[in-house]
Design a protein around this nucleic acid. Sequence first.
DNA 1: TTTATCCATGACACCGGTGTCATAATGGTG
DNA 2: CACCATTATGACACCGGTGTCATGGATAAA
Lengths: 337, 337
Amino acid sequence: MKKVTINSVASHAGVSKKTVSRVLNNEPNVSAATREKVLKVFKELDYTPNPIARGLAQNRSFIIGCIYDNPSKSYITRVQTGALAACQENNYNLLIHPCELRGDALINNIDQLLQSSRLDGLVLTPPFSDFAELADFLKSKNIPYARVASAVLEDDSISVRSNDEQGAFEITEHLISLGHTAIAFIKGHPDHSATEQRFMGYRRALATHGIEFEERLVEEGNFSYHSGVDSARSILDLSPRPTAVFASNDYMAAAVLKLATQRSLKVPEDISIAGFDNAPIARHIWPGLTTIAQPVEEMTKQAVTQLIASIVEPQEKPYQATLEAKLITRESTAAVK
Amino acid sequence: MKKVTINSVASHAGVSKKTVSRVLNNEPNVSAATREKVLKVFKELDYTPNPIARGLAQNRSFIIGCIYDNPSKSYITRVQTGALAACQENNYNLLIHPCELRGDALINNIDQLLQSSRLDGLVLTPPFSDFAELADFLKSKNIPYARVASAVLEDDSISVRSNDEQGAFEITEHLISLGHTAIAFIKGHPDHSATEQRFMGYRRALATHGIEFEERLVEEGNFSYHSGVDSARSILDLSPRPTAVFASNDYMAAAVLKLATQRSLKVPEDISIAGFDNAPIARHIWPGLTTIAQPVEEMTKQAVTQLIASIVEPQEKPYQATLEAKLITRESTAAVK
DNA sequence: TTTATCCATGACACCGGTGTCATAATGGTG
DNA sequence: CACCATTATGACACCGGTGTCATGGATAAA
């Protein structure tokens, strides 16, 4: 079985390879009859253009890279799902590149990646979507990129986010509406802009309802389950103990739940727990976690779609959007006793 | 800033591009002096070969595809981690391709994928690693592939697995040693060969210890959390109720735990629960799940390493290995009352 | 010293597409 | 009908590497 190339198609159709190329790319200036003839040969020979050859000629790879460093694996999975959906629609492929570096080492690593793969563009996910120096580097190299879930708005690039501040506000308000006033808060990783956003939403809700903010109720986490365990320990040791805990993501909330249960506290009777993200674990545990559902897949899909569009033809104004987050109430929150 | 290509290197070094190519690929028949000179120019010009051009010339893409359809996202994450490790060591990239199809549609989909990406090889993960027709198709197309975690041994291809049967045997024996004799079992997805393996291990342990196998204690699951909920319902409704449940993976075990807790059963006092895989959720919930740790990352890393080796130069005998699974005891299992 | 062998190197085609430009055919206008 | 603009098409170079083969000089064997 011989390989079917543009040359074999051309000779079968009795036209030049350039004409075949024109049909392939829907270029104008091909007569209807010729186009018809070539399309017929495509079918007969079951021809698919070689993306590598095309890439060489156009200096493109048809590959998008996805950069991440996130302790929440389920978040990454959702990011991938969204990115893949956009890629598949546009005949692009997705290359995944986990990366734990920061500063110069990060820049060098990404540089290396770009050298070795000739990626057409990058999707930056938190925390990389918030790094100005990385954005500057990519700009200097002229590599298109899109940022997902970043609160940094100054950078004039494609960006799709959800409203973390508002989500945090709503879930805090939900707790307040249940009568809670002593609401502990676990922060996320300081590198992520969402961390500050969620904290601000929490504080705004307290302020709106005339509840005094207390520093002692705030713990530093980093989005990992493990950090949640440490924070939970501190919080459950407080006296008086808060009646509710709002953790900046579901993994840390799950850690609070585990520790509380270990200590024979009943959730939500003795203490209410709220998370953020609506990760699978939020519904895999008992009681299920009240949380904020973020459209991670949709955010990423939009970001990648726009990224590819901007590769095909540079946009005048980069797409920027903020999607809605939504409160999901489950069994882990209840009225204060 | 001009692009640095093999031509600019050649003219700077005063040699032909072919000689540069020789140096690049560590080919013999280059004098030490020439090699030195070319290497120096590499440094000066900061040259990196263009993988696309190289791919065109050698009809290679330097990309491995990873095919999966698994309800367990954490399993996929681990597979990716292992595959990425192997790829990075060999300057390959990883393309991820989730796929929910079966039969002819599956074959067509993979065919399409191969047409459009010219992948150098595929890693098949469960359940695809068990599909003979897919393996046959890839053989006919002459596409190298490696299988991860498949119990199918007939196929003469690269395969790295862990001993599911033995793992299931050990964890069942662990329950028996705690005094349990009425041990319910939740099966996995029938498409996965691991499903049958784990079931066999369970039965072998019962037989070894003279415990009669009871059909009524077996439920059909499919590895998803949701299916675990359904199976758990049936099991907890049994009367007399079994004193232990062994679920074929941790997600289903977590579902049993959730339902049992909802029904105010105490785990492990009222009922012991065991899982399989050592997924993150096994330690994120309370009580932590007794389970079998499989070296998923390592399996995949070995598989991909061998796959790449076989692409570089065809092997006489495909690598096949079986790695050890290990019992992890946590709080979800205890002696029968 | 002559001949055969080996080594280092380069010229050139090739991989499978796309971009540029020339050219022939077609159509519209004065 | 002559002239110019437009459309359809192809020839050919090019993208940046690798494979094949020829060549000339160095080395070994006769």
